[in-house]
């Protein structure tokens, strides 16, 4: 049952991702991206990470996609635009880049991480059951990874200030 669900959502995710980059209209691309993000959320559920799945739907499929659509509307990109890959050279480079990615995927598949690093089956589910989904995420976030967490907020602040400095018309 889990396997069937996984392959279904994986197929949907990949098909929507392909459609996302092949559609000419930016709005259609954005909507296919929503589909991909939803499928990924479903796969997170299968990985015993319901909290991440909920965040994925709220933040990525929700907030960020709304932002995307807003930008598309503001920039008036509703019309179809010419493709990014032009000429035989562009195509050759695109194919080569794709082949490199495929090769890398295969190489990484064959070179699975060492067995010592793999958690025994059910560990994540056990943690979630014992402590609840939110706490399972919150504990490492606010203890082991406290510094990266706080630095992220400073980074976002710097980005906001920078964007305002560059975009403000009158200083």
């Amino acid at each position: 049952m889990t396997l069937v669900a996984f392959w279904t959502f994986a197929a949907v995710a990949i098909a929507s991702a392909v459609l996302c980059i092949t559609r000419r209209s930016p709005v259609a691309s954005a909507l296919w991206l929503v589909n991909t993000l939803f499928s990924l959320a479903a796969i997170y559920v299968l990985l015993d990470a319901p909290f991440i799945a909920a965040i994925q739907v709220l933040v990525y499929a929700g907030a960020i996609m709304v932002l995307f659509l807003f930008v598309i509307m503001l920039l008036n990109l509703g019309r179809t635009a010419p493709g990014d890959i032009k000429g035989p050279w562009g195509r050759a480079v695109a194919v080569a880049a794709g082949l490199v990615l495929v090769f890398e995927l295969v190489a990484l598949w064959l070179a699975a991480p060492p067995g010592e690093l793999e958690l025994p089956a059910g560990t994540v589910a056990g943690t979630v059951a014992a402590r609840g989904a939110v706490q399972a995420v919150a504990r490492p976030l606010f203890q082991g990874y406290l510094v990266p967490f706080e630095v992220t907020s400073v980074l976002l602040l710097a980005a906001i200030v920078g964007a305002v400095v560059l975009a403000k018309r009158r200083l």
Binding site: Y145, V147, P148, V151, T152, V154, L155, A158, A159, V161, G162, V165, L166
Partner: peptide, 25 residues
């Protein structure tokens, strides 16, 4: 001491310097 911290430090530095480089509008 953590690749996370290094990456975030790098980004914090870079984002600020991108803006500084473009100051003279």
């Amino acid at each position: 001491e953590d690749l996370f911290v290094l990456f975030l430090g790098l980004e914090l530095m870079s984002v600020s310097v991108y803006v500084l480089a473009g100051l003279d509008r």
